[in-house]
Design a protein around this nucleic acid. Structure first.
Lengths: 249, 249
DNA sequence: TAGTGGTCTAGACCACTTG
DNA sequence: AAGTGGTCTAGACCACTAC
């Protein structure tokens, strides 16, 4: 038995525990696409043999990635790379009329989509230089016969080029699955910030609401598996339809 | 070695894993006050001997309670029962002028405090029958020289009787520490729901805002260690000062 | 029946905190 | 130096899922 080799000779092992190093190694395989979203990773035993460690240790490494939301374990079936966010989750902020239980997807109407130069702040979000190219999308979302949300979306352009080729009519109602299939981008995490203001005249008209009507604004930064920002989104909706629940402990 | 006794003879062991049963046993000691908030629980080894199980199993049980937020582990020092919520956390929904970094506690002004009969819905929250007695508190909270929040608080009355004896002038600015010291109640978890509306005339006057000004309403259910609701609170504040960040993954 | 993850054991040594 | 939790091992058996 090697008992306790003082350092695992992976690429960079700086003061990390063994399971930490291995978790990083597994994460690298996921981020690189070596293990695709939705697919199963090798069994515990196989990984333990590969890394030359005990079962308990590989389990600990996997637990780290499960905690991060990168992996998902299922009794008797295996351990799977989690698929990206569906994107429908923005509706969790609003309750428009209908039944509460069913998570509905609003119909998407693309108002405009064009390549633009990103200003300094926007480019910085994507880790690009000021003036870099991006895609600016304006979208209106409907529930039944009523416009409910207004969205302004920015995407980094070398990365999401494939979207420009595809006619908006074929985009469907959800952006993230499209980003996955067309651009190979997996949205793994999002940070939403909620504030509150009143609608500008043009916004109010598009939402069929009175001028200066109160509205909730959700500002979203979405990130890929590597943790890079790949979407900036501004969503506006009727403030009186806003409802959000937070658990504190 | 007993190897694997099929069932641990605790009180109720229904299909739970051993560490699950033990986690429940530990939780009972915390909820009963046997292990007080802030104090250390016995070391892993001692607990393992007491329950007649391996170290790894007691660690698993403790991990469950850490995950639930009941316990906290500190390297080299021990495992501690977590103290209750500070209550200042409601400010996380609002950003009033001042510096962002510092978590400030607004000054509390008690507008009224009286015993009332609870209607059916309110009594049900506390697990009481309609018409049960409760404490209704109205509070205004100041930052510097400006009133910022309006709070309506309901508490179940047999439980929080000690508050009535204490003059409001001695309450201080935070309710939860007071509930702990005066009534022996630990607030361990809270569920906040956010909605938007406009201010009524009396509310607007108290907050020194225009009539019908937009406001954010935070509805809070707070729970003790046993999971029973012990506070219902309605907080109103200027909607334009509202700002909340949520992480999705 | 074979393969997966889930639970459990009985040790060992390490890292951190305290007196 | 003594006590605590943190890491790691090398096994065992159980529960669930598939074929």
């Amino acid at each position: 038995m090697p008992d306790n080799a003082p350092l695992q000779t992976t690429t960079a092992a700086a003061g990390l525990s063994r399971y930490g190093q291995i978790a990083a190694a597994l994460q690298a395989r996921i981020v690189s696409g070596d293990w695709a979203p939705g697919s199963a990773i090798p069994a515990e035993g196989a990984l333990a043999r590969e890394f030359g460690i005990a079962l308990g240790t590989i389990r600990q490494a996997i637990a780290v990635l499960v905690q991060q939301g990168l992996l998902e374990r299922v009794q008797g079936k295996g351990t799977f790379v989690r698929r990206g966010l569906s994107g429908a989750s923005l509706m969790r902020f609003f309750r428009f009329g209908g039944a509460d239980g069913a998570p509905v997807v609003p119909r998407s109407e693309i108002l405009s989509c064009r390549a633009v130069r990103l200003d300094k702040a926007m480019a910085a979000r994507f880790g690009l230089a000021s003036g870099a190219r991006g895609l600016a999308i304006s979208r209106r979302r409907w529930l039944e016969q009523t416009p409910r949300l207004l969205e302004s979306i920015w995407l980094p352009l070398p990365r999401c080029e494939a979207l420009q080729q595809l006619p908006p009519a074929q985009w469907g109602d959800l952006l993230y699955p499209l980003l996955g299939s067309a651009c190979g981008v997996t949205v793994h995490r999002a940070v939403d910030e909620v504030t509150f203001r009143t609608l500008a005249a043009d916004e109010a008209a598009l939402l069929m609401l009175p001028d200066a009507h109160p509205c909730a604004v959700v500002t979203r930064h979405a990130f890929d598996l590597a943790g890079h920002c790949i979407e900036y989104r501004l969503t506006r909706g009727d403030a009186f339809a806003f409802r959000y629940t937070a658990d504190v402990r």
